[in-house]
Design a protein around this nucleic acid. Structure first.
Lengths: 180, 180
DNA sequence: TTAAAACATGTAATTAAATACACGTTTAAG
DNA sequence: CTTAAACGTGTATTTAATTACATGTTTTAA
C-alpha cells in the first residue's frame, strides 16, 4: 500500500471522531493539528469530493437557518478501514521541519555577528508566545486526568508541542548567553 | 520585499561560503541542512538558471578529467545583497513541522490502545538512531572550540537538531512509561 | 438596525515539490 | 580490467500546496 497524500488520512481521522463539514475540517488546522500539519479550504473541498467518489466518506445536507446548506461528512466502513490501515503502517520517514530561521542562522558564520543577538531575541519572543498559548490550551482542555484519557492522542501531541517549544526556547536562551 | 521561495536564499547562502556546483548544492541537503530543509536536484538546476538570469549568481565552466563539464556557481554582488536582505528581515512565520507520526497519534483516542506501545517504540528507535548520527557529526565536525567559532551558524543549528531529537526521544520515553 | 465577523462552499491560477525519465563521465574498489 | 558507485546536469510529468477569485448566509456585537 503506497501511502502518500497525508491530508486524506487526516480528513479520515478527523471524521472518525465526529461528523464534520469542510469548514470544520479547515478550522481544525488553525487549532490543534495546525502545529503538525497545515491545509487550507481550497485543498480540502476538492479532496472531500475525491474521497466521497472513492467511497471513503459520505455526506448529508443540513440546513442552517433559512437556506444555508452545509455538507456534513462522515466516514464509511471503507473509510474507517483505510484509516486503520494508515494508522497501523509503520511511520519511517522523518520529514525535515522547514525552519526558515534556522536556515538564516546557518549562514551566519561569524559568532560575533551583531545581527545574531537581535535575531535570537526575536525568535525567543515568538516561541515564548507560542509556548504560553499552548500551555493555556493545555490547562483549558486537559485540566483533569479524565479529560486527558478521554482524548489521549490529542493530549499527547499537545504535550509534545509544549515540550518542543520549551526546548526551542531553552536552546535560544542558552545560545543568547554565549553570544555577547 | 516579498520573500517567498526560500530555496533561492538557501542557494545564495551556500554560495556565499564557497563556490559550488548544482550537484554540491543538492548534496548539502542530504547533509547538514537536510535537517531543516529539503530540495532535490530537479528543483535546484532550473532555479540556478533563474538566479543566473536574474544576475544574482554566475558560473564558470570547469573540466574534470577529459571532458566532464561542471558549472561552478558563485555569488554576484547583487546576489550577496539579496542574501543579506533576506538574512536581516525578521522571521515571523513559524512553519508547522509536518510530522506524520504525531498525526497518527492524534487519532488514537484510547489511552489503552494496544498499538500505542509499538508505535511509540518504533519512533523512539528512529529518533535515537538519528540522535546518535547527529552526535557523531557534532564530534566529527566541532570537536574543539575553534572549529565551533569558525562556522558558528552551522555549529548552532547542529546543536539545535541534537536538542530537538533528544527532546523528541525524551517525550517518547516518558509517554511510553505512562502507556502500559 | 446595520455592519463586521464568522459560517459555508466552491473554482482558478500559480508556484513548490516530488518522482520519473534521460544521458554521460570519473573514480575507487575488487 | 571491469564494474559499481559516485559525480554531474538536465527535462518532463505529476502531485501538493498556496494564493486569489468568487459568492452567498447567519450570527453577534455595537
Amino acid at each position: 500500500m503506497v501511502q502518500k497524500n497525508k491530508l486524506q488520512y487526516i480528513i479520515l481521522g478527523l471524521l472518525s471522531e465526529h461528523e464534520l463539514t469542510g469548514y470544520d475540517i479547515a478550522k481544525a488546522f488553525t487549532a490543534d493539528i495546525g502545529e503538525f500539519w497545515n491545509a487550507n479550504h481550497s485543498q480540502i473541498y476538492p479532496l472531500l469530493k475525491r474521497l466521497e467518489t472513492a467511497g471513503l466518506i459520505t455526506h448529508q445536507l443540513s440546513i442552517t437557518g433559512e437556506k444555508l446548506e452545509k455538507k456534513v461528512y462522515s466516514l464509511t466502513a471503507a473509510g474507517q478501514a483505510q484509516l486503520q490501515e494508515w494508522l497501523h503502517e509503520p511511520t519511517t520517514e522523518l520529514t525535515a521541519s522547514k525552519d526558515e530561521f534556522i536556515l538564516k542562522l546557518y549562514f551566519i558564520q561569524d559568532a560575533h555577528d551583531p545581527s545574531l543577538q537581535p535575531m535570537l531575541t526575536e525568535q525567543l519572543l515568538l516561541h515564548q508566545a507560542k509556548l504560553v498559548h499552548l500551555q493555556k490550551q493545555m490547562t483549558r482542555k486537559f485540566a483533569d486526568k479524565a479529560s486527558q484519557l478521554a482524548n489521549y492522542g490529542h493530549y499527547l501531541i499537545l504535550q509534545h508541542a509544549i515540550d518542543r517549544e520549551q526546548g526551542y526556547a531553552d536552546w535560544l536562551t542558552a545560545t543568547l548567553k554565549n553570544v555577547d
